[in-house]
Design a protein around this nucleic acid. Sequence first.
DNA 1: CGTGGCCTTGAATGTATTCAACGGGGGTGG
DNA 2: CCACCCCCGTTGAATACATTCAAGGCCACG
Lengths: 232, 232
Amino acid sequence: MRESDIPEIRRLPLFDGMSDASFEQLTRGAYVQTFPPQVELLHEGDSSDFLHILSEGSVELFARWNRRETTMAIEHPLAVFILAATIRDAPYLMSARTLEKARIILLPSTDVRAVFATEHAFARAVVTELAQSYRQVVKSSKDLRLRSSIERLANYLLRQRAAGSGDCAITLAMEKRRLASILGMTAENLSRAFKSLQAYGVQVDGATVTIGDPTDLIRLAKPTPLIDDPDR
Amino acid sequence: MRESDIPEIRRLPLFDGMSDASFEQLTRGAYVQTFPPQVELLHEGDSSDFLHILSEGSVELFARWNRRETTMAIEHPLAVFILAATIRDAPYLMSARTLEKARIILLPSTDVRAVFATEHAFARAVVTELAQSYRQVVKSSKDLRLRSSIERLANYLLRQRAAGSGDCAITLAMEKRRLASILGMTAENLSRAFKSLQAYGVQVDGATVTIGDPTDLIRLAKPTPLIDDPDR
DNA sequence: CGTGGCCTTGAATGTATTCAACGGGGGTGG
DNA sequence: CCACCCCCGTTGAATACATTCAAGGCCACG
């Protein structure tokens, strides 16, 4: 790992308040690697040798079973992923692949666990990170269990609008087929779901989605912070 | 909180290695309460005032949205629940109700956070607990996304068999309607799913389910530790 | 100008929910 | 002790929701 890479991650909440000695211990065996798109970084079932920190690009976390595949999450910088597996020294539950060209910092899991055992600040930071991740998965699970695919799409659009500071013209950041997988449906079904949303003022043109009247869409989507709020 | 209640929870992994002073700080404002069945202990959206530890009985964690309801998990002693909300000082994402008469230890969230901030051993224990919970939800999410309702039921039965040390006669620990909700389906659909499993040697008599030939069921269920293993 | 990937559309099928009705078991009150 | 009722589970039929398979259009790229 080069000197120049260090300040970048030193500021991460995960390393906040950590002693320089511990941080050095963490980064000594670390390295930074750049991957082209569509590279499978790790496979579910493998043992967790490295904690991954996404520095640039984007990464898809997905899972397979019986010839089916589903997208569990998409990660953007600066994100830490597979933290739980690293901490528990357990096999990955999800696979990961790069979507775009991605720059990734890899910290040896043994070092992470060692520092975690000695540094209180790090343990606290890990808790905060894990608690956040946990709540995110619970929200996603509620989304899946309680909503139909059209409702999930409607709420997704509203979340994207909120993320883009309220602009009613949304640019989808990924292929539709991948969005479909995130939302727990097939590409064909997503296409039809978009069509159903026309009745609520949603217009689709390629990767650009326009929400005609948010109130209309909100009446259908019934968003709630307990599912749709990314923080909290 | 009575003196006699203390040893019971002192042995929890969550408090392992914690100083007596910190433990005393945690339990000073704590209290123990016994609830009858079907009591709603907390409601999603409420702020998390207490960390809950289930000492006896069982508790259902569930969520509602738009007049729909789903069971997220069932907790048994000795389980800690709503830990993530307590740590983040965020609103509950799930509601909880007692299923049977339940004995519950309540630790004020502010105390939990205070001790968490000062005690390294506690922070570590919380991490372990959270990482475990996180992985459990991820597994549940994979189960939902990747499997049909019949496959989910088949795997549930196999998990119950494993939990009961391999006995092919399983006694369902709850009403079928609740099991249906856990498995993410309606009561009617569960009934039909059981019927479909007759073709794989599954016999149902009230709350007793018998697996005729496990190999048959396994061929359908295709269980994997990455979804069905409760540990790891 | 062809080719391949992504998206869309249609039709058929499969999966799951809804609504309504029925039967049995456990509890209550007469 | 029995009649009654309520809740749970089951069943059927109709509907809604979602996937599969096949085909065609469009765009980007070589």
